[in-house]
């Protein structure tokens, strides 16, 4: 295939150097981004806590219902079939429906949580990205697909810096998931693996911020605060800097 002419290359190079964010605009957009991200963290955390609370309530309600059935003499005559179980617990797989837990003091926003947005200004943008985050559909050459497959399945097919990023992402994501389910030790292990393999990786900043949270969750408050200070010094412009500054209070 014919390469672009020298004129074309020169013009495109000039274009690339001309169409950039100026220093001031770059800093300004970054500051707005930090504020937006920082502002959206609290609702995310609250959403997680409320979701966990809803699951706990549902489990408790199921246990109470099961126990009351078990000790009810009128039910002891016949052994219930799986279908009876389904009818009692609300659906076929034996787990309680949301309606079962409603009387058991449900949090007022639980029903709306899965679709709740952190803020009205950003919600439509999220929707835009959710429809399909890759540009594959614009060519019509590939059918529009669901959310991309998990990283581990696709990582072998990737190459170069993006493959490395995928590996980094898998480790940081695993740490975040472990932390979200309360396994701080596992989170720290994933982060240590990331640190040894990608000391200066693209997600080093993210890794260090999650590590502060994991240390705090593991009860190592002093170390968490010390590393939080280091984080702010190392990444003063980070989107996590404000959160780190107030991480793990005494």
């Amino acid at each position: 295939m014919a390469e672009p002419s020298d004129d074309a290359r020169e013009l495109l190079a000039r274009y690339r150097s001309a169409r950039v964010l100026e220093t001031r605009a770059r800093a300004c957009v970054h500051a707005r981004l930090v504020a937006s991200i920082d502002g959206s963290l609290v609702p995310d955390r609250r959403r997680l806590v409320l979701t966990v609370a809803a699951v706990a309530l549902a489990t408790a309600a199921a246990v109470v219902l099961a126990a009351s059935w078990w000790w009810d003499p009128s039910q002891a005559v016949a052994t219930p079939s799986p279908r009876d179980d389904a009818a009692m617990f609300g659906h076929d797989d034996g787990t309680p429906r949301q309606t079962v837990i409603q009387p058991a003091e449900p949090p007022p926003r639980v029903a709306a949580l899965p679709t709740a947005d952190p803020g009205p200004a950003t919600a439509p943008i999220d929707d835009v990205a959710t429809s399909s985050p890759t540009p594959r559909s614009i060519d019509g050459a590939s059918p529009p697909g669901p959310i991309p497959a998990p990283i581990p399945a696709l990582a072998p097919a990737t190459r170069g810096p993006d493959r490395v990023l995928a590996q980094e992402l898998a480790l940081v994501r695993a740490a975040r998931l472990a932390l979200d389910v309360g396994d701080a030790a596992a989170a720290l292990e994933h982060l240590a693996t990331h640190s040894s393999r990608f000391a200066e990786g693209q997600l080093a900043e993210e890794r260090d911020s999650v590590r502060v949270e994991a240390l705090c969750a593991a009860g190592k408050g002093a170390q968490a605060r010390a590393e939080a200070q280091l984080f702010v010094r190392r990444w003063p412009d980070s989107t996590h800097a404000a959160r780190m500054a107030r991480a793990c209070p005494r």
């Binding site: 937006s36 943008i125 990205a129 696709l154 990582a155 990737t158 995928a166 992402l169």
Partner: peptide, 16 residues
């Protein structure tokens, strides 16, 4: 980049 921040976990490791 706000979307990127929220959706980074969906990035499939192909061309960034």
């Amino acid at each position: 980049f706000l979307v990127v921040h929220r959706r980074l976990h969906e990035y499939d490791g192909r061309s960034l």
